[in-house]
Amino acid sequence: MILNRLRAALILLTLIPFMLFACGQDEESVRVDMSKREDIRVPEPEPAITYAYLPQYSHTVSYQRHNPLIEYLARETGLPIRQVFPDTFEEHRRMVEQGDIDISFSNPMTYIRLAESGARAFARIIEPSGNPTFRGQIIARKDNRAIHHLRDCKGKRWIAVDPLSAGGYLFALGLFLKHGITVDDFAEIAFAPGPGGKQEKAVLAVYAGKYDFASIREGTLDIVKDKISLDKIRIVARTRPYPGWVYAARKGLKPQIVDKISKAMFKLTMSKPGQASILSAAGMRGIIPATDHDYDAIRELAAKLGMYGEYDTGRRDDL
C-alpha cells in the first residue's frame, strides 16, 4: 500500500511541470504599445530666494552653520528662502552671474569678481574675534623640524584651499610676496581637491604629512578640532587683516527684498540667547552694513597679485 502511494506521488510530481506549461499556453499574451508613454517629471522646488555659502567647507557643515540663520531670516521677512550648494568657488560665482543665487555669502576676493557682474555688497560679518576683518594662517605640523618661520616655506610643498580663496590662498600669497617669496620658490603649490570641504582638506593633508604646509582662513582649526589633535599643528604665520566675509545681492534682485533681508540681519545680536546661537552656529558675532567701497583694499591686493590691473600701484610694501 505504501509503495503504491509513493509511486502515485512520483507520477504526480513528474506531471506538474507539464500541467503548468499547459495552463500557460491557454493564457492570452499581453501586447505593450511602446508608442504610448507618459513622461514623469521630477517636481521642481517651490520658488524661493536662493541663499548660498561659498563652499569652503563640506555641504553638511555649510548646512549646519547656516540653516538656523536661513530659518530666522524666513521667519522675520516672511520670504521663502532656500539654501543651495554649489560645489566649487567658480560654480558659486557663475551661479550668481546667471541669477541662480540671489544672496551670496562669500569671501572678499570672490566678491570683487561677483561685483563685475553687477552683484553688490549690502552686509558683512563681525568675525568670532569681534572684528569685521579676518586673516589667513599658514600652518605646519609641529614635528616638521624644517618649518618654523615664513622663510622656511621656500622650497617646500604647499597645499592651499582654492585659487580664489582669500584667507586660504591669496592673503598668504600676498604675505609671501611682501617677503620676497614668489610662486616659483615652492616645490609645489596644490589646491584642495573635490567639491566643498576644502578648508578641512587642506588641514588634513598637512596633518597626514602629504604636504609640508597649508594656508587656511582664520577659524578653520576650530572647525576641525574634532577630527585632529590641534596640539600637533603649528601656526607658522598670520597675514594682515582684511575686510571680512560679505553678503551680496545678485544683479536685478528687487531692492525691497534686499532691504527686508538686511534689516533682519542687522537685528541679530549676541545679547539675546536665541539669536546668539544662530550667530555662533554661522561662525559670526554679528552682521553690519557694507558697501562696495569697503572692498577696495581687496582690489588693491588683487592688482598686486597680478589678478587685476586697474589698481596696480607698483608698490609691494603695503601687502
Rank of each mutant, 00 (worst) to 15 (best):
H66S: 14
F85R: 04
I101D: 03
D102N: 13
P80T: 04
H59N: 02
N67Q: 14
R65S: 14
R94Q: 15
E71W: 06
L69D: 08
T60G: 13
I70A: 13
R93W: 01
I101R: 03
S58E: 01
L54G: 05
L54W: 02
L69H: 08
R82L: 02
F85A: 09
I70K: 11
Q56R: 06
Y72M: 07
S104E: 11
V84G: 10
E90I: 06
T88H: 01
F85C: 03
T88E: 00
Q64P: 01
E71G: 03
V84H: 11
P80W: 03
R75T: 09
P68N: 13
E71R: 15
A74M: 12
E91N: 06
S62Q: 07
S62E: 05
H59W: 02
V96K: 06
R82F: 01
F85I: 03
Y57T: 11
N67P: 00
S62V: 01
R75V: 04
R94P: 02
S58F: 00
T60E: 13
E76I: 01
Q56E: 13
P86Q: 07
Y63L: 09
Q64F: 09
R82G: 03
E97T: 10
R65V: 04
H66E: 14
S104P: 12
N67W: 04
T60K: 14
F85G: 05
F105Y: 15
M95L: 15
E90H: 01
L73W: 05
Y72Q: 10
F85L: 08
T77Q: 13
P55E: 07
Q64R: 15
E91I: 04
P55A: 10
Y57F: 15
Y57I: 08
I101C: 06
H92N: 15
V96C: 07
I81H: 11
Y72P: 04
E97R: 13
V84C: 10
S62F: 01
Y53T: 03
R75P: 00
G78I: 00
D87H: 00
E90M: 07
L69Q: 08
Q98T: 09
G78Y: 01
P55V: 08
G78S: 00
L79D: 10
R93N: 04
L69S: 07
H59M: 05
Y72A: 08
V96L: 07
Y72T: 07
L54K: 02
D102E: 03
F105D: 05
D100L: 13
Y63T: 08
P68D: 14
R93K: 06
